[in-house]
Design a protein around this nucleic acid. Structure first.
Lengths: 212, 212
DNA sequence: TTTTGTGAATGGATTCACAGCC
DNA sequence: GGCTGTGAATCCATTCACAAAA
């Protein structure tokens, strides 16, 4: 393992990607895979796979490849998805409800433990197919502490996103996954990731137009 | 304008990002902005803003800055979001329904003109707050042609994602926005963008863990 | 004076290519 | 013989710094 070298952010992202096909391989009883094959499945360069992993250790066997079970376990350890993370949902509209029922989250150890909304019409209702009751924003501080919530997912209307982020920070969450098309302002010690699918569509539109 | 220089893919993505604060500026009656200020709003370097734009032309005025209206129009033209794009939704589950009601899409000229699902229980139903009736997959080819659908959004369960993509390609769509955590296989002439929020959460988890 | 547009310089990330190991 | 791990080489993206323009 290279000691002390700086790890490219892109490597972290790809490592998360590598785990997806590994899970499928296990289901189909394949227990060994080469960087060549894994790279194919993820559409990257084989050397890239090896280098990405090498930032964190030596997980393969020369002449053989990688043990799928071991590699998957190693990746989970690297990413911190070898434990449960407790999430709060902010905004119980269409997108929020889709997120809370999104099975991939639970499968990977992400667990919603509270839902908040600012609309009086929604507060107090139970979200079907979950056991969660929609809480008023005033409960945020209390519940973040008592339920040990670490990450907040913002799925409010854009106009409420910044205010919601401010309240989350006050309440003590450490990271935010922001689904609104707004660039949030937040203290340096709070991590934020943005998900904005309109950007993805814009990209498709650009490249579609290009190839005329 | 630099002629013939290759445009970094990252620049396209950022240019889409620049348009978000510009829209807000217009609403608040600000008609001029410097690269410095726009960069702040988007959390990038001012030189980056200028270089990104310079790949496509000269949109600013030296000593002054950029005219917000003009720049926004220019960006829309660059990205191809100055016209309507016709979308199909594949999979009318929680995520699919959230996408079809996602207002940001319509605001940017993306319009769902058909919804498909493979479940008999859903086919024939009308999606509330839209005028769309859920179609069986067998209608895909016909409707892609008659409605001139260019992009398909895959929001099926992961197990159906590849099959759905194959059908979309058969039917003649040119691009796919894939919300399933699966790496799709498709012909080279079909554009694919992937959206996988669990990857974003994995990233947050990694950096949260790091900073202990 | 101010701020753009852009070559040049820097800094990263990706890929190559091969030594090292099974 | 086959595949990993990794320094070196390459490629690409970002930032600097300043001439050009208003």
């Amino acid at each position: 393992m290279k000691k002390e070298s700086k790890i490219p952010e892109a490597s972290i992202e790809r490592i998360a990607l590598y785990s997806r096909p590994l899970e499928k391989l296990l289901e189909s009883r394949s227990f060994v895979i080469s960087s060549e094959k894994l790279a194919q499945l993820c559409k990257v360069n084989p050397a890239q796979v090896r280098k990405d992993l090498s930032y964190f250790g030596e997980f393969g066997v020369r002449g053989i490849g990688y043990d799928v079970t071991d590699l998957l376990r190693a990746i989970r350890k690297i990413l911190g998805s070898d434990r449960e993370w407790r999430l709060a949902l902010l905004g119980a509209g269409n997108m929020g409800q889709a997120l809370i029922r999104h099975e991939e989250f639970l499968k990977r150890g992400y667990r919603f433990v509270a839902v908040f909304d600012s609309s009086h019409g929604k507060i107090g209702k139970t979200l079907s197919s979950t056991s969660l009751v929609i809480q008023p924003m005033s409960m945020l501080g209390l519940l973040v502490e008592s339920l040990e919530i670490e990450v907040g997912l913002i799925a409010t209307p854009p106009s409420e996103a910044q205010h919601t982020a401010d309240r989350l920070v006050e309440a003590g969450v450490k990271a935010i996954l922001n689904f609104s098309p707004i660039q949030l302002r937040q203290p340096d010690n709070i991590l934020v990731e943005n998900v904005d699918f309109t950007v993805n569509l814009d990209n498709l539109a650009y490249f579609l137009k290009e190839r005329l």
